[in-house]
Design a protein around this nucleic acid. Structure first.
Lengths: 188, 188, 188, 188
DNA sequence: TATGAATGAGGGTTCATTCAT
DNA sequence: GATGAATGAACCCTCATTCAT
């Protein structure tokens, strides 16, 4: 039963965050949507931001794992192409699901999100991290961690701007640049 | 006298923002530090965020203009090298002046800052924008606006991470990557 | 416990309103007097004026119902006399209880009060309204609603002035005029 | 020059009062409209309410005097008819000039207004007061002050309600009631 | 576990009034 | 007379957090 309420809180918060942003979502809003008492919130989460953190990790894992699943279906040989496939998959997912974009960026700075993503990626439990490191080793990439970091940072910053139409460029056009920068970083 | 108080508010706010971040800085804090009555704040600024905006624009202009001044002293011929010189100058400035770094990133999302920077850069009154466009034209760079955007986004995202030691890499090492990506983007 | 605090707020507000008037009574005053936290006020009332509204309705109902109770003890036959009995009862009540008079008129315009009273009276749930309409019908009064309105308006305006000694006339003298006007309005 | 600014303040305040009501009109609003500095306000008026008082007296005198002027053109013999003529004139004026109605009643309670009117009427400098007392004496009305008071109170309360459509009755219908009550009060 | 009434610090904002110029 | 920058008390309201039940 307890997990039930905890999950309801997570789901309700997610829906509110993507619609109103975190700062404008109150704990009252969350517990109302979850049909749970206010005190119950504090039984499961220290505060709003701890809940958010959990949500970001969860949603990111989902995104990455879906990308990996899809990758495994395509038998792509070249490491560079694998990396690009994953990045393309992520940007396409985000383009089709506006919610997650708002979630990671309205109020929530992208920079903040990057903190979370980075710490997420550094966890060796994360399959995508392993996949990258394995591929990097096989391809004798010198500093794989820095390379990954550069790719992620570049991707995060630019993809967000492209998706929100801050930059007047289509996703297809953007991918060309992206692939070139990735190639450049990997073939150090 | 009036400009005096206005300036005291700006200065006090700047100092508080870089130490506590904007969200944790209250208007009461600002007026206390400026030794000014609360109502005086509202005489000059609509709210905390308007003041911040003014501060960001001002500080950014300072940074860009200093970079350009310095560039003009060095007689660098190649466009790509000029761009790199400016980026290096900015990252070095930020490295030596911790304040501005906290100011643009604590609470304040980097993304938000980029909005400001971007709108700032798009103003044709801004010398740095002109400089880039002129150089790009001379070098027959195809889509100078997209190139500039890519460089700024990449630089903003990575420089911040490097300066805050989120990534274990020295500034010198970082510059090597940076220059390569810049080269790659410019020689499209 | 909850109703306890709510009632304490109502009582405290009433006492403050009758002594200082609504406009000069702050929410801080009310919660202090009720020995309750500020936030508690907003738990029960939207704002000061909603509380006031509730108070006016409550006090008015009390007054009307007492008047009707008393009327029923006196077996008065004639409709006109019944109406005068009620008006007399109300003015006597107000004369003996200064509080309610200040409450309905200091700051609070009498006109405003009339709005409340009128809407109160128009509710068919209100016994006094039924009593009047029934009596009016039996006595073949042509436009009972207008008659009631005229009586109420005349009574409200003059009674208030008499009770506050704005006019140098005793209550007894006043009743004579009042009864004449009532008679005149009813025997249209 | 000074009278000029003073008058501009009065005029501006009047226009604001009739549109926004007194409570929502700030001194800043008034001085802005009068194109005068804030401090200047305090040179001529103690506060907003002293200005308002002056305005009420002035506008009321205007209304009464216009009524008297018009009366003198009609050679009406009977005292009762003269009184009714004046009341009719006033309600017709108010009906045609919405401004004054808002002025005396939005925020400003009618009761408050009555205070002013009453004190105004008691001043023997007021022609209308003289006219009434003279007529009353000639007609051997016993307590002319009380009669005047009753008429004014009844008229104020009901006319306001009729004009603001709080009561569903035409002005013509209303006048019939009004005249009957006046007759009744005068023929005591 | 679960509740939700109660808390109260703290936020932003307004505005009548003063006073040095 | 005239100005308007400066004041600061006062206000309303929000909301994360606690705690007795």
């Amino acid at each position: 039963m307890e997990e039930n309420k905890r999950n309801r809180l997570l789901t309700s918060a997610y829906n509110l965050f993507i619609h109103k942003g975190i700062n404008k979502t109150t704990i009252q809003d969350i517990v109302d949507a979850a049909r749970v008492a206010k005190g119950t919130f504090y039984l499961y989460f220290e505060d709003k931001y701890k809940l958010q953190e959990e949500l970001v990790v969860e949603k990111s894992k989902e995104l990455f794992n879906n990308a990996l699943d899809e990758l495994s279906k395509h038998k792509i040989k070249k490491f560079e192409d694998q990396v690009n496939f994953i990045l393309d998959y992520i940007i396409d997912s985000m383009a089709s699901e506006v919610g997650i974009l708002n979630f990671i960026s309205k109020d929530l700075s992208l920079g903040l999100y990057q903190d979370k993503i980075s710490s997420l990626i550094e966890k060796d439990t994360l399959k995508i991290y392993d996949m990258f490191m394995t591929g990097a080793k096989e391809n004798k990439i010198k500093k794989p961690e820095i390379a990954l970091f550069m790719i992620i940072e570049f991707f995060s910053a630019t993809a967000y701007s492209v998706l929100t139409h801050k930059m007047d460029i289509t996703i297809s056009e953007y991918k060309i640049y992206l692939h070139k920068v990735v190639k450049n970083i990997l073939n150090d």
